[in-house]
Design a protein around this nucleic acid. Structure first.
Length: 551
RNA sequence: GCGCCAAUAGCUCAGCUGGAUAGAGCAACGGCCUUCUAAGCCGUAGGCCGCAGGUUCGAAUCCUGCUUGGCGCACCA
């Protein structure tokens, strides 16, 4: 808001300079307006002069002086304009400008920070998408939290977001699952059984077997593999769903790979690719000419058994996303899954769709430490930590916050002992505590019979302390930060912002009293506090973390 | 061998489209509760931003090469 007003002013001055022949239009849209890191460098600074000087082989300070001259004519925003360093033009705002952020916050409340950047565009966020072979584990947890936060952010900036879960309940994996369940079932009945070599060893298989025994005794002992597959799938999927709901993640739709087969969409894709001459037969298999799309080698899409590889349904699925009208698609994938992406992109490109509309948000692995040692995880071997176990230990808020604390393409180290022992000093509490403190101040005001003031009708010029000034600046940056975090699919940026805002508030709180003897100062500070509280609450909501009123 | 990701303080990590003296949190050390919640605050100490070149007025940030670590490289998903 304030920043964009200033940017407009800068653009105007640039134009005026062009008209007056001070400089050419060569640097249009190249210069930027940034926030200097150090004190004494103004509220904003621009590298304008250095860029213009670079283009025109002039002295930066000379250009800076000309720009400063134009800027100084403004009387609404600027207090003073200085030239510093190699040619920065530092802009100092009038003291009252910053406090003008509070009125809009009070007015917008929970809408503060939202915008319409997405213009209602339909976007799909596909995430989790775990096949129903076992409980969600730590890696899925990162996927789930990341995908959900991205979905919330995109919604906040005006996209029409659909959260979708894509799964497959057929194929080899599920056959092994069925065989594993059957073996456990027979084992429990004391009957001879053959547990598959690469079977799923998790204890949950025994639970499902027991439920079958409870229901029908040994009535399933001669049942078809399909029966076991269905039982296993349904039970496991129900658990996954429960886990997701528990951490506050609700999907708008589930897409079963099976549908693609039923609707004949798989054959359609093959026929269409064949029509374009991009498919050929070799060694009894069907190949897709991915080399035509810059891949190092062609890939099999139908095996010699007649069964498609994962690529084919994936391509068909993505085509369905386009057909369903999504204009932007975000897929959240773990690093191990990433190799499949180029093939799918090649497929949709081959089918005539714009692959740049598909965006992959890749996250690196979660390294799990127990007692300082790395735990190797495998769903089959049942050596894993589940999302539920993790949530039991650290709580939902810490669980979500922790997974968003690092950018997605960094590996994340999750030390179980540390997570447990830190549960009292986890960064999430730092932010939540700031919110609780703010609520506490409001309660006190109420007790003392002080009505919460409206910023629009309060004299905010009393906010003159450095800490107050800093807080106002940070609040003003919030909407832009949300937009940035959404566009770059980077929820961790929001997390860091919240920690910074909370930190600034804690400092302020320790140094200055809100409830003072002076009614006007108190009123102004209460306005500031309400603004901070709103920003914290809104930011926490955007990452799915609660904002407690008491702690 | 090829591809993707990473490399910043003792540890775990930020650093937005390149900008002016490098930032947190833990851990270490020293302070602050008769005053709005000490799950807090203040201070000290700690860094050839993996290495070497290049582009630029200016590089942790961009480019190239190299080193180290992770993940992939199926007619598994």
């Amino acid at each position: 808001m304030i920043r964009s007003r200033l940017k407009n002013l800068l653009d105007q001055c640039f134009q005026q300079g062009v008209e007056q022949g001070l400089w050419s239009a060569a640097a249009a849209n190249l210069y930027n307006l940034e926030s200097p890191r150090h004190d004494g460098q103004g509220d904003f600074a621009t590298n304008f002069a250095m860029l213009v000087a670079g283009k025109e082989r002039r002295k930066p300070r000379e250009v800076a002086e000309q720009l400063a001259e134009l800027l100084r004519r403004d009387t609404t925003l600027l207090d003073k304009v200085e030239i510093a360093g190699p040619g920065f033009v530092n802009l100092f705002l009038k003291p009252t400008v910053w406090s003008s952020v509070l009125a809009p916050i009070a007015e917008q409340q929970e809408r503060f920070g939202l915008c319409d950047l997405g213009k209602g565009m339909k976007v799909m966020v596909e995430f989790v998408s775990a096949n129903p072979t076992g409980p969600l584990t730590v890696g899925h947890g990162r996927n789930a939290v990341l995908g959900d936060a991205v979905a919330r952010l995109l919604t906040a900036v005006g996209y029409d977001v659909t959260r979708e879960y894509y799964f497959n309940d057929a194929g080899r994996q599920m056959r092994v699952l069925a065989a594993s369940l059957k073996a456990r079932y027979l084992e429990k009945l004391g009957l001879p059984n053959e547990f598959p070599e690469d079977g799923y060893q998790g204890g949950y298989m025994y639970d499902i077997a027991q439920s079958m025994i409870d229901e029908a005794g040994d009535g399933f002992k001669d049942a078809d593999a399909n029966v076991f597959r269905k039982r296993a799938q349904e039970a496991i999927f129900a658990d996954i769903d429960t886990t997701l709901k528990r951490i506050g993640i609700i999907f708008d739709s589930y897409y079963n790979e099976h549908d693609l087969y039923e609707k004949g969409l798989i054959e359609d894709v093959v026929a269409e690719l064949r029509g374009k001459g991009l498919v050929y037969e070799q060694d009894d298999a069907t190949w897709f000419k991915t080399t035509e799309f810059g891949q190092p080698q062609d890939r099999v899409i139908i095996k010699n058994t007649g069964e498609p590889t994962y690529r084919l349904p994936d391509i068909a699925y993505h085509r369905e996303k386009f057909r369903r009208g999504f204009e932007r698609m975000v897929n959240v994938f773990g690093a191990d899954h990433i190799a499949t992406v180029p093939d799918v992109l090649a497929g949709i490109e081959a089918l005539g769709y714009d692959k740049s509309k598909v965006q992959v948000l890749m996250y690196q692995f979660v390294t799990l430490l127990r007692g300082g040692k790395q735990v190797k995880m495998s769903t089959r071997k049942a050596s894993y930590i589940t999302v539920d176990e993790l949530v039991d230990e650290v709580g939902i808020d810490a669980f979500r916050f922790f997974f968003l604390l690092r950018k997605s393409d960094s590996q994340l180290e999750f030390d179980l002992e540390l997570a447990k022992s830190q549960s009292q000093e986890n960064p999430v509490y730092y932010v939540q505590y700031a919110h609780a403190r703010l609520c506490s101040i409001e309660r006190l005001a109420e007790e003392r019979g002080i009505a919460l003031p409206e910023p629009a009708s309060t004299d905010l010029s009393h906010l003159q302390e450095a800490e107050e000034y800093q807080l106002l600046k940070t609040l003003a940056a919030y909407p832009g930060l949300v937009a940035d975090a959404a566009e770059t699919l980077a929820p961790h940026r929001l997390i860091f912002f919240l920690m910074e805002l909370a930190g600034q508030f804690h400092s302020f709180y320790n140094k200055h009293k809100v409830m003072t003897e002076e009614a006007q100062l108190t009123a102004a500070r209460l306005c500031l506090c309400q603004g901070i509280k709103t920003a914290l609450a809104n930011g926490l909501a955007l990452v799915g973390v609660s904002a407690p009123e008491r702690m």
